[in-house]
Design a protein around this nucleic acid. Sequence first.
DNA 1: AATATTTTTTAGACTAGTCTAAATTTATTT
DNA 2: AAATAAATTTAGACTAGTCTAAAAAATATT
Lengths: 219, 219
Amino acid sequence: MNSFTEENYLKAIYKLIEQNDEAVSTNAIAKKMNTKAASVTDMLKKLSDKKLIHYQKYQGVTLTAKGEKVALSVIRKHRLWEMFLLEKLDFKWDEVHDVAEQLEHINSDKLIAQIDKFLNYPKFDPHGDPIPDVNGKIQTQKSKSIANFKKNDVLVMTGVVDHSTAFLQYLDKSGLALGNEIKIKEVIEFDRSLQISINKKTTIFISNDVAKNILAITK
Amino acid sequence: MNSFTEENYLKAIYKLIEQNDEAVSTNAIAKKMNTKAASVTDMLKKLSDKKLIHYQKYQGVTLTAKGEKVALSVIRKHRLWEMFLLEKLDFKWDEVHDVAEQLEHINSDKLIAQIDKFLNYPKFDPHGDPIPDVNGKIQTQKSKSIANFKKNDVLVMTGVVDHSTAFLQYLDKSGLALGNEIKIKEVIEFDRSLQISINKKTTIFISNDVAKNILAITK
DNA sequence: AATATTTTTTAGACTAGTCTAAATTTATTT
DNA sequence: AAATAAATTTAGACTAGTCTAAAAAATATT
């Protein structure tokens, strides 16, 4: 078994690799983990001994298959617990992270399998981040503009193309935010404008111009 | 904040005090915690410094109000998590303990309040053990023979008076086990025999002699 | 009341994880 | 290609929790 600390290091390394797709430096890990480079070096030796990372002095690290599996398992647990807190226990987004950071280290295959089932096997969290399956497999799916989807598609908003204040204010006013569930209720043929529902509640109309600037993935 | 280990020591001390209602010895704690007396002594010093226990060398320990509060909070979390696993995630009794041992240390007031709410504020776990409330208050209730209850009472079976093999086999055959929910469906005036349902499923008849030998508390 | 036994504590050592400060290696600049 | 700067590692120390072995205190036995 791996300690909480080891799991946290592996998760941090995974996320850093994900960002730039190259070996990550001791300093980068230290920054992410809010610790000192010397402490990181110590841990890297240990993880290397356990065959969880590829590590050569001064050369940065990558994950071994074994290490990646552990990282993905932690990420899976984190995201499932976040979903659970949000959907079943009425947590707000800003309350979720700290608790999930603790829960992600609970060690019980059955527990996480049942939580997964309880949530009806979600593939993405409300951020649009994919939830790895039991085997660590990730549903990779590129965010697309919601103008590309069709009637009755259920999506999760993951980003925007236009980052102008004007546009963001418009989104805010319309009640659209990252992580929202968007369902395409109607596609108007004439001008490709959309009728969409947000989080199963409010329904709004948006022009094709706006739609093109909102990124989402299917839920 | 207290470490997992400190919480576990406090919980162990609480339970030992509960059993005999007197100061508990270093050895008793060592046995309960599966550790050595020397380790216990070290921890007792620490807990004493933190004003969580009353400790004088060679004299055994009791909990301070502060220490008892921590212990009760851990027990509350443990029992609520057990209920949650059993009732919401289809765990079996023997699968519950190890996971609850981990979950009881998760630190989030909101989380445990929501779990409590989700379970509809249970006062006893399926063992019949009381679940302390947020303030550490325990619903004390003595187990009584089910011959003492009346029609429509909903109970939790907590024990037996007669421990003979014959009786236990009879219980087993009847589907009666510790922790079962028993509802008094009917009390026959004539011979004080009972019609009871077990876990909302099977309904059986038992004689007053049998009823006198089954202990339970109201749910 | 003296001796033996049991219980508890102390002393010193070990592991996991962290730190500071110094040394070493790599990268950058001139 | 030297010199300087930045990144990384090593050395040694610290805390939390644990252990074994030995010492001290309390309890039981004769």
